[in-house]
């Protein structure tokens, strides 16, 4: 099995912030959405595992008082995948939960995203996924907003 450390160091990666954003958005997608996104680019979903897709733990850190010293709040399950395409691009995914199929698809998407010719189609697919999610968040925000308290003060006293 090839070593995981074959990934180029971050400074040589183009558009690090854009890649982080794409990985985050892929993390919000369902397996079906990821499959559909890959299919749109005509990208093969064949990839070699750099490391078997596996579920493990991360320790979730909080901060005392919300903004102070770090403390260990408890763990969370995380599933990670690391793949390499026939062209040599490596892709990764780290997702909360235990869905290995989804994590592996997201890692394949991350690898394809690094191919400039595949990127626009994948970005368009991720836009659609993000749009679906944003609508759900917007609706939840509207329901929350309806429970906002509007205080009013009753006048009392002599003046």
């Amino acid at each position: 099995m090839p070593s995981v450390s074959q990934t180029p160091p971050p400074h040589s990666m183009p558009d690090l912030a854009a890649r982080q954003r794409a990985m985050a958005r892929a993390g919000e997608a369902t397996s079906d959405e990821l499959r559909a996104a890959l299919a749109r680019t005509g990208a093969v979903t064949e990839a070699q595992d750099l490391r078997p897709t596996e579920t493990g733990l991360v320790m979730v850190r909080g901060r005392i008082g919300g903004d102070g010293r770090a403390f260990n709040a408890g763990e969370a399950t995380v599933t990670r995948a690391a793949v390499r395409l026939p062209g040599g691009e490596t892709g990764f995914a780290y997702h909360l939960g235990r869905d290995r199929v989804r994590a592996r698809l997201a890692a394949i998407l991350d690898a394809h995203w690094q191919r400039p010719e595949a990127r626009p189609a994948l970005e368009a697919a991720l836009d659609a996924i993000a749009g679906r999610r944003a609508e759900a968040v917007r609706q939840a925000a509207r329901k929350t907003a309806a429970t906002r308290v509007n205080f009013f003060t009753l006048a009392r006293g002599e003046d």
Binding site: E54, G56, L57, G62, R63, A70, N72, A76, V78
Partner: peptide
Amino acid sequence: LPRFGATEPLDTGGMT
């Protein structure tokens, strides 16, 4: 399960 590491300290100020 193996432990992959620890998260960045979370920011409750940015909570939805």
